[in-house]
Amino acid sequence: MVSSIFKKNRWPIEIRPPSGWLKLELGAVWKHAEIIYILALRDIKVRYKQSLAGVGWAIIQPLLTMIVFTAVFAGVVRVPTDGSPYPLFSLAALVPWSYFVHAITKSTTCLVVDKDLITRVYFPRLVLPVSAVVGGLVDFGIAFALLVILLLAYGVAPTAAVLLLPLFLLLAMLTALALGLWLSAVNVQYRDVNNALPFFTQVLMFISPVAYPSSVIPEKWQMVYALNPMATVINGFRWALLEGQPPPGIYSLVSVAVVLVALISGLYFFRWQENRFADVV
């Protein structure tokens, strides 16, 4: 009478002390994709439920930052923008940047926030940071809509490069996930990570071309500058959306390489630490 639901699974389940080579078992994460969906949905609900501005928060933050940036960097300091109106120039960067900060914060704290799940039920723990990164996409979508409206208002038409926009978004997601894997696993034991995170993202913003164009960086430093993948993400967003912006150069490959190394090492680190999460958190 036991239902056939689980027929497709392989038996038996072996429970042993951790030993041998670490396997990533990404297939198990895929099999639990439904959890990613439910948890991402929950994050969105929680974010907007007991709040007055609700969905507005997704827009308020980048919008206000854009206004402040425009006042300071276009009005006072006069930062070059490669020919684009400054509000557009900064918002095109602030939208992916806000997503990144949101995703990295959520994924860093996910294991501690979902302590109740971790200490009571088994599932591949990788599901948690992944759902944090995916859940942030809703906010991104709302903020992106604001960006589109502003583009229309300024009468800026996108070029064919806009088709590559999803790739740059993917790069932002993977960057957030890679950092989130490392930081969340460490945060389980050392909550210092959580305290240091706002400072870390703030510093990262200054070394990313959010308020200024990356063309102000001297050529010989461009390669070093591209070690920060968010530089490529932002350059990509500007290039895809604003006519006349330079394409992210060959150094983008440096960013991609950095993300891949961080992501793969992060996956292994996370898996290595995973066994201890329930005991330590």
């Binding site: 389940i13 072996e14 429970i15 042993r16 002390p17 951790p18 971790i118 200490t119 009571r120 039920v121 088994y122 066994n275 329930a278 005991d279």
Partner: peptide, 9 residues
């Protein structure tokens, strides 16, 4: 499977 054993299976 919430926590892992130290020995045995």
């Amino acid at each position: 499977r919430i926590t892992q054993p130290t020995e045995g299976f």
